[in-house]
Design a protein around this nucleic acid. Sequence first.
DNA 1: AAATATAGCAACCGCTGCCAC
DNA 2: CGTGGCAGCGGTTGCTATATT
Length: 280
Amino acid sequence: MGRAPCCAKVGLHRGPWTAREDSLLTNYIQVHGEGNWRSLPKKAGLLRCGKSCRLRWMNYLRPDIKRGNITPDEDDLIVKMHALLGNRWSLIAGRLPGRTDNEIKNYWNTHLSKKLRSQGTDPNTHKKLSDPHVQEPKKRKNSNKKKKNNPKPQPQEEPEKLKVHNPKPIRIKPLGSFSMSRNSSFDWTPTTTTTTTTTTASGTEVADDPWSNFRYNEVGFLIGDDQDHDMINCSDLECHSGVPTSNHTLEKLYEEYLQLLKTEDHDHVELDSFAESLLI
DNA sequence: AAATATAGCAACCGCTGCCAC
DNA sequence: CGTGGCAGCGGTTGCTATATT
Protein backbone atom coordinates (compact mmCIF):
# COMPACT_ATOMS: atom_id res chain seq x y z
CA MET A 1 0.00 0.00 0.00
CA GLY A 2 1.44 3.27 -0.93
CA ARG A 3 2.20 4.47 2.45
CA ALA A 4 5.80 5.25 3.17
CA PRO A 5 7.37 3.64 6.19
CA CYS A 6 7.59 5.80 9.24
CA CYS A 7 11.26 6.21 8.68
CA ALA A 8 13.85 5.23 6.17
CA LYS A 9 15.47 2.10 7.46
CA VAL A 10 18.82 2.78 5.89
CA GLY A 11 21.43 4.42 8.02
CA LEU A 12 19.42 4.32 11.17
CA HIS A 13 20.46 2.60 14.34
CA ARG A 14 18.30 -0.22 15.58
CA GLY A 15 18.31 -2.51 18.54
CA PRO A 16 19.36 -1.67 22.06
CA TRP A 17 19.98 1.92 22.95
CA THR A 18 23.37 3.08 24.07
CA ALA A 19 23.94 5.35 27.04
CA ARG A 20 24.91 8.13 24.68
CA GLU A 21 21.72 7.84 22.71
CA ASP A 22 19.73 7.84 25.92
CA SER A 23 21.51 10.93 27.02
CA LEU A 24 20.93 12.73 23.75
CA LEU A 25 17.27 11.90 23.80
CA THR A 26 16.78 12.82 27.42
CA ASN A 27 18.60 16.09 27.08
CA TYR A 28 16.65 17.03 24.02
CA ILE A 29 13.30 16.30 25.60
CA GLN A 30 14.21 18.10 28.79
CA VAL A 31 14.85 21.20 26.75
CA HIS A 32 12.21 20.97 24.08
CA GLY A 33 9.59 18.71 25.54
CA GLU A 34 7.93 15.71 23.98
CA GLY A 35 6.24 15.62 20.66
CA ASN A 36 7.17 15.90 17.01
CA TRP A 37 8.70 12.49 17.17
CA ARG A 38 9.30 12.34 13.50
CA SER A 39 11.61 15.30 13.45
CA LEU A 40 12.99 14.79 16.93
CA PRO A 41 15.79 12.35 16.09
CA LYS A 42 17.28 14.67 13.55
CA LYS A 43 17.12 17.64 15.85
CA ALA A 44 18.49 15.67 18.75
CA GLY A 45 21.32 14.28 16.70
CA LEU A 46 20.08 10.73 16.88
CA LEU A 47 20.27 8.19 14.11
CA ARG A 48 17.02 6.63 15.18
CA CYS A 49 13.53 6.40 13.88
CA GLY A 50 11.17 8.78 15.63
CA LYS A 51 9.00 5.92 16.62
CA SER A 52 11.92 4.25 18.30
CA CYS A 53 12.69 7.47 20.17
CA ARG A 54 9.17 7.76 21.38
CA LEU A 55 9.14 4.18 22.58
CA ARG A 56 12.44 4.54 24.36
CA TRP A 57 11.28 7.67 26.11
CA MET A 58 7.87 6.35 27.04
CA ASN A 59 9.03 2.98 28.28
CA TYR A 60 12.40 3.68 29.77
CA LEU A 61 13.66 7.21 30.02
CA ARG A 62 10.72 9.17 31.36
CA PRO A 63 11.49 10.48 34.80
CA ASP A 64 8.28 9.13 36.27
CA ILE A 65 8.91 5.56 35.35
CA LYS A 66 8.67 3.17 38.23
CA ARG A 67 10.56 0.04 37.40
CA GLY A 68 10.44 -3.48 38.70
CA ASN A 69 8.72 -5.00 41.70
CA ILE A 70 5.10 -4.90 40.81
CA THR A 71 3.39 -4.92 44.16
CA PRO A 72 0.62 -7.35 45.06
CA ASP A 73 -1.78 -4.44 45.01
CA GLU A 74 -0.73 -3.46 41.54
CA ASP A 75 -0.87 -7.09 40.57
CA ASP A 76 -4.42 -7.33 41.80
CA LEU A 77 -5.40 -4.11 40.12
CA ILE A 78 -4.00 -5.24 36.80
CA VAL A 79 -6.01 -8.42 36.94
CA LYS A 80 -9.18 -6.55 37.75
CA MET A 81 -8.63 -3.92 35.14
CA HIS A 82 -7.84 -6.58 32.59
CA ALA A 83 -11.10 -8.30 33.39
CA LEU A 84 -12.83 -5.05 32.62
CA LEU A 85 -10.84 -3.63 29.78
CA GLY A 86 -9.16 -6.59 28.16
CA ASN A 87 -5.80 -6.09 26.50
CA ARG A 88 -6.00 -2.35 26.54
CA TRP A 89 -2.64 -2.03 28.17
CA SER A 90 -2.34 1.69 27.83
CA LEU A 91 -5.60 2.18 29.68
CA ILE A 92 -4.53 -0.19 32.41
CA ALA A 93 -1.14 1.47 32.61
CA GLY A 94 -2.85 4.80 32.95
CA ARG A 95 -4.22 3.62 36.25
CA LEU A 96 -0.88 2.49 37.56
CA PRO A 97 1.32 5.50 38.09
CA GLY A 98 4.79 5.06 36.77
CA ARG A 99 4.01 1.86 34.95
CA THR A 100 4.11 1.63 31.20
CA ASP A 101 1.83 -0.24 28.91
CA ASN A 102 4.76 -2.28 27.70
CA GLU A 103 5.75 -3.25 31.20
CA ILE A 104 2.24 -4.25 32.13
CA LYS A 105 1.83 -6.16 28.93
CA ASN A 106 5.06 -8.03 29.58
CA TYR A 107 4.12 -8.63 33.19
CA TRP A 108 0.77 -9.96 32.16
CA ASN A 109 2.22 -12.29 29.58
CA THR A 110 4.99 -13.61 31.78
CA HIS A 111 3.43 -13.68 35.22
CA LEU A 112 -0.23 -12.98 35.52
CA SER A 113 -1.54 -15.14 32.75
CA LYS A 114 0.33 -18.07 34.23
CA LYS A 115 -0.82 -17.22 37.71
CA LEU A 116 -4.44 -17.08 36.66
CA ARG A 117 -4.10 -20.28 34.74
CA SER A 118 -2.63 -22.02 37.73
CA GLN A 119 -5.59 -20.79 39.73
CA GLY A 120 -7.90 -22.35 37.21
CA THR A 121 -8.91 -19.10 35.57
CA ASP A 122 -8.77 -18.40 31.91
CA PRO A 123 -6.60 -15.28 31.60
CA ASN A 124 -8.45 -14.20 28.50
CA THR A 125 -12.01 -14.54 29.69
CA HIS A 126 -11.39 -14.47 33.44
CA LYS A 127 -13.75 -17.37 33.75
CA LYS A 128 -13.06 -20.63 35.46
CA LEU A 129 -11.33 -23.19 33.36
CA SER A 130 -12.86 -26.63 33.40
CA ASP A 131 -9.39 -28.11 33.40
CA PRO A 132 -6.62 -25.75 34.41
CA HIS A 133 -4.06 -27.76 32.51
CA VAL A 134 -5.85 -27.89 29.22
CA GLN A 135 -4.74 -24.59 27.84
CA GLU A 136 -1.07 -24.32 28.34
CA PRO A 137 0.47 -21.25 26.80
CA LYS A 138 2.10 -22.09 23.55
CA LYS A 139 5.82 -22.48 23.64
CA ARG A 140 7.93 -19.94 21.95
CA LYS A 141 9.10 -20.75 18.55
CA ASN A 142 12.69 -19.65 18.72
CA SER A 143 14.89 -21.47 21.11
CA ASN A 144 17.84 -19.12 21.00
CA LYS A 145 20.00 -21.11 18.70
CA LYS A 146 22.35 -18.27 18.04
CA LYS A 147 23.80 -16.74 21.12
CA LYS A 148 26.50 -14.33 22.09
CA ASN A 149 27.04 -13.37 18.50
CA ASN A 150 26.00 -9.85 19.01
CA PRO A 151 26.39 -8.87 22.59
CA LYS A 152 23.91 -6.29 23.59
CA PRO A 153 25.58 -2.94 24.07
CA GLN A 154 24.25 -2.24 27.50
CA PRO A 155 24.31 1.23 28.83
CA GLN A 156 27.12 1.65 31.30
CA GLU A 157 24.64 2.10 34.04
CA GLU A 158 20.97 1.92 34.62
CA PRO A 159 19.28 5.23 34.24
CA GLU A 160 18.67 6.60 37.65
CA LYS A 161 15.39 5.46 39.03
CA LEU A 162 13.87 8.75 39.86
CA LYS A 163 11.16 8.61 42.43
CA VAL A 164 8.98 11.01 40.63
CA HIS A 165 5.39 10.74 39.88
CA ASN A 166 3.78 12.27 36.90
CA PRO A 167 1.00 9.84 36.27
CA LYS A 168 0.94 9.03 32.69
CA PRO A 169 -1.26 11.23 30.60
CA ILE A 170 -4.15 9.34 29.23
CA ARG A 171 -5.51 9.71 25.81
CA ILE A 172 -9.20 10.20 26.10
CA LYS A 173 -11.60 9.88 23.30
CA PRO A 174 -13.23 13.17 22.47
CA LEU A 175 -16.63 13.60 24.00
CA GLY A 176 -18.65 16.68 23.46
CA SER A 177 -16.59 19.72 24.10
CA PHE A 178 -13.83 17.82 25.77
CA SER A 179 -11.24 16.71 23.35
CA MET A 180 -7.70 15.57 23.48
CA SER A 181 -4.86 16.79 21.43
CA ARG A 182 -2.36 14.22 20.40
CA ASN A 183 0.38 16.75 20.35
CA SER A 184 0.03 17.69 23.94
CA SER A 185 3.15 17.12 25.84
CA PHE A 186 3.84 17.41 29.47
CA ASP A 187 6.46 19.87 30.40
CA TRP A 188 8.76 17.97 32.58
CA THR A 189 11.66 19.77 34.04
CA PRO A 190 14.20 18.44 36.47
CA THR A 191 12.77 20.66 39.16
CA THR A 192 9.77 18.40 39.40
CA THR A 193 11.89 15.70 40.93
CA THR A 194 11.05 16.94 44.36
CA THR A 195 7.74 15.20 44.33
CA THR A 196 7.05 12.43 46.73
CA THR A 197 8.17 8.89 46.63
CA THR A 198 6.22 5.85 45.76
CA THR A 199 6.86 2.17 45.82
CA THR A 200 10.38 0.96 46.18
CA ALA A 201 11.87 -2.46 46.05
CA SER A 202 12.40 -2.59 49.75
CA GLY A 203 9.13 -1.25 50.94
CA THR A 204 5.87 -0.15 49.61
CA GLU A 205 4.08 3.03 50.36
CA VAL A 206 0.95 1.91 48.70
CA ALA A 207 -1.96 2.28 51.02
CA ASP A 208 -3.60 -0.72 52.58
CA ASP A 209 -6.58 -0.15 50.46
CA PRO A 210 -5.70 -1.87 47.24
CA TRP A 211 -7.86 0.59 45.40
CA SER A 212 -6.00 3.60 46.52
CA ASN A 213 -3.87 3.42 43.44
CA PHE A 214 -6.91 3.16 41.36
CA ARG A 215 -8.50 6.08 43.05
CA TYR A 216 -5.72 8.56 42.92
CA ASN A 217 -4.76 7.71 39.48
CA GLU A 218 -8.26 8.15 38.28
CA VAL A 219 -7.83 11.73 39.26
CA GLY A 220 -5.15 12.17 36.73
CA PHE A 221 -7.21 10.59 34.12
CA LEU A 222 -10.61 12.09 34.24
CA ILE A 223 -10.17 15.66 35.31
CA GLY A 224 -11.07 17.98 32.57
CA ASP A 225 -14.38 19.57 33.22
CA ASP A 226 -13.20 22.96 34.12
CA GLN A 227 -9.93 23.18 32.39
CA ASP A 228 -8.79 23.06 28.90
CA HIS A 229 -6.03 20.60 29.56
CA ASP A 230 -5.68 18.03 26.95
CA MET A 231 -3.50 15.81 29.00
CA ILE A 232 -3.84 15.92 32.70
CA ASN A 233 -1.00 15.12 34.97
CA CYS A 234 -1.25 14.79 38.66
CA SER A 235 1.67 14.49 40.97
CA ASP A 236 1.61 12.26 43.98
CA LEU A 237 1.82 15.33 46.06
CA GLU A 238 -1.50 16.45 44.85
CA CYS A 239 -3.04 13.08 44.73
CA HIS A 240 -2.07 11.96 48.20
CA SER A 241 -2.56 15.27 49.83
CA GLY A 242 -6.21 14.71 50.41
CA VAL A 243 -7.06 17.86 48.60
CA PRO A 244 -10.41 17.28 47.00
CA THR A 245 -10.17 16.95 43.31
CA SER A 246 -12.27 18.92 40.97
CA ASN A 247 -14.31 15.99 39.91
CA HIS A 248 -16.79 14.35 42.24
CA THR A 249 -17.83 11.94 39.59
CA LEU A 250 -14.55 10.19 40.14
CA GLU A 251 -15.54 9.13 43.57
CA LYS A 252 -18.90 8.10 42.30
CA LEU A 253 -17.30 6.13 39.55
CA TYR A 254 -14.99 4.45 41.96
CA GLU A 255 -17.76 3.61 44.37
CA GLU A 256 -19.80 2.24 41.55
CA TYR A 257 -16.90 0.11 40.50
CA LEU A 258 -16.42 -1.15 44.02
CA GLN A 259 -20.04 -2.13 44.25
CA LEU A 260 -19.78 -4.07 41.08
CA LEU A 261 -16.71 -5.86 42.27
CA LYS A 262 -18.21 -6.68 45.61
CA THR A 263 -20.77 -8.90 44.06
CA GLU A 264 -18.87 -12.11 43.69
CA ASP A 265 -20.72 -13.29 40.66
CA HIS A 266 -20.94 -9.93 39.04
CA ASP A 267 -22.98 -9.40 36.02
CA HIS A 268 -20.73 -9.07 33.04
CA VAL A 269 -23.09 -6.80 31.28
CA GLU A 270 -22.85 -4.33 34.09
CA LEU A 271 -19.12 -4.56 34.21
CA ASP A 272 -18.91 -4.13 30.51
CA SER A 273 -20.99 -1.02 30.62
CA PHE A 274 -18.88 0.28 33.43
CA ALA A 275 -15.77 -0.35 31.40
CA GLU A 276 -17.36 1.50 28.54
CA SER A 277 -17.96 4.43 30.80
CA LEU A 278 -14.30 4.46 31.70
CA LEU A 279 -13.37 4.74 28.11
CA ILE A 280 -15.45 7.74 27.43
C1' DA B 1 31.72 -27.16 33.65
C1' DA B 2 29.21 -27.25 29.51
C1' DA B 3 25.01 -27.57 27.05
C1' DT B 4 20.32 -26.75 26.78
C1' DA B 5 15.86 -24.90 28.15
C1' DT B 6 13.16 -21.34 29.98
C1' DA B 7 12.03 -16.70 31.71
C1' DG B 8 12.00 -11.93 31.28
C1' DC B 9 11.96 -7.74 28.99
C1' DA B 10 13.39 -4.18 25.53
C1' DA B 11 12.51 -3.09 21.06
C1' DC B 12 10.34 -3.68 16.57
C1' DC B 13 6.40 -4.08 13.35
C1' DG B 14 2.31 -2.99 11.43
C1' DC B 15 -2.24 -1.46 12.07
C1' DT B 16 -5.63 2.05 13.67
C1' DG B 17 -7.57 6.38 14.73
C1' DC B 18 -7.24 11.26 14.79
C1' DC B 19 -6.33 15.58 12.74
C1' DA B 20 -5.18 18.98 9.26
C1' DC B 21 -5.65 20.20 4.75
C1' DC C 1 -15.87 14.31 2.25
C1' DG C 2 -11.51 12.23 0.98
C1' DT C 3 -6.68 11.79 1.65
C1' DG C 4 -2.20 11.86 3.75
C1' DG C 5 0.68 12.21 7.75
C1' DC C 6 1.42 11.38 12.35
C1' DA C 7 1.21 9.44 17.07
C1' DG C 8 -0.21 5.74 19.70
C1' DC C 9 -1.36 1.00 20.57
C1' DG C 10 -1.05 -3.98 20.91
C1' DG C 11 1.10 -8.17 19.19
C1' DT C 12 5.32 -10.25 18.32
C1' DT C 13 10.22 -10.99 18.06
C1' DG C 14 14.98 -11.21 19.51
C1' DC C 15 18.32 -11.12 22.86
C1' DT C 16 20.27 -11.80 27.54
C1' DA C 17 20.10 -13.83 32.06
C1' DT C 18 19.09 -17.56 34.79
C1' DA C 19 17.80 -22.29 35.80
C1' DT C 20 18.09 -26.99 34.86
C1' DT C 21 20.09 -31.17 33.10
